[in-house]
Write a protein that binds this DNA or RNA. Sequence first.
DNA 1: AAGCGGTGCAACCGCGACGAC
DNA 2: TGTCGTCGCGGTTGCACCGCT
Length: 267
Amino acid sequence: MGRSPCCEKAHTNKGAWTKEEDDRLIAHIRAHGEGCWRSLPKAAGLLRCGKSCRLRWINYLRPDLKRGNFTEEEDELIIKLHSLLGNKWSLIAGRLPGRTDNEIKNYWNTHIRRKLMSRGIDPATHRAINESNNVPNVKTISFSSSSVTTTEETKLNIIECKEEKICTMNVKDQERCPDLNLELRISPPSQSSSAGQLLKRRSLCFTCSLGLMNSKDCCCTYSFSSNCSSSSASSGSNSTNGDIGGGNSDFLGLKGGLLEFRSLEMK
DNA sequence: AAGCGGTGCAACCGCGACGAC
DNA sequence: TGTCGTCGCGGTTGCACCGCT
């Protein structure tokens, strides 16, 4: 079954928006509010598709947008949220007032990835690059807590079945850090990690997994004095937010408690 | 001054989710 | 319950800008 195009492409403009188009869009939304994106272009007298209008409004024209450079605090917050949520840019954006998912996505790809790499952290896994390399052929799925939604559980089950691989959930991890970064590792039994590697991963607290080794917020049992002190660990002194829910801070507004995933859905 | 490569960002595209019928 | 239309998300692309040679 084919999908009908979202708009009549033959009669729509593409590319950069002109000032006049912006003005028309702003005026229309001020008068009628957001929504009905499909019919908006015609109503506003714009030769654009609804999607294009929505994107332009959300990413550029919205009055509550905060333009300008990201602060150091925003940087760290994005990193933490990404380690928790992955590429869920809209959820991350929901925690950064005035920032859009597109903006954060771009910023991640252009700045933060490089920043983490320079710290010796794999931006995809938030683990030390050396450690990531030592665990071949392992799929890591992170989810936030036992309060993970049914949908998320379903997804995990589907993945489990599709991969036809053994899933193991480390219950001890859940007990130690009930609120974050619990991992479902999927790997062939023959490639299960060595005891030493397993110990290292088990003992990696959230703060350290962000590359903030030796931070005051570190609560892991594994010492980084030998392995990680060389990977710009001193940057951990910049950490102000602490670990999620496990420390004294109120990261994500979840003081000391379980992370309620739904609470992140701001939209 | 021109050419070139790297970077940043706005915009597009395809697909999944969801609601209406 | 299934189909269809719309919306929203995440990945990708294209282009302008900038610095270097």
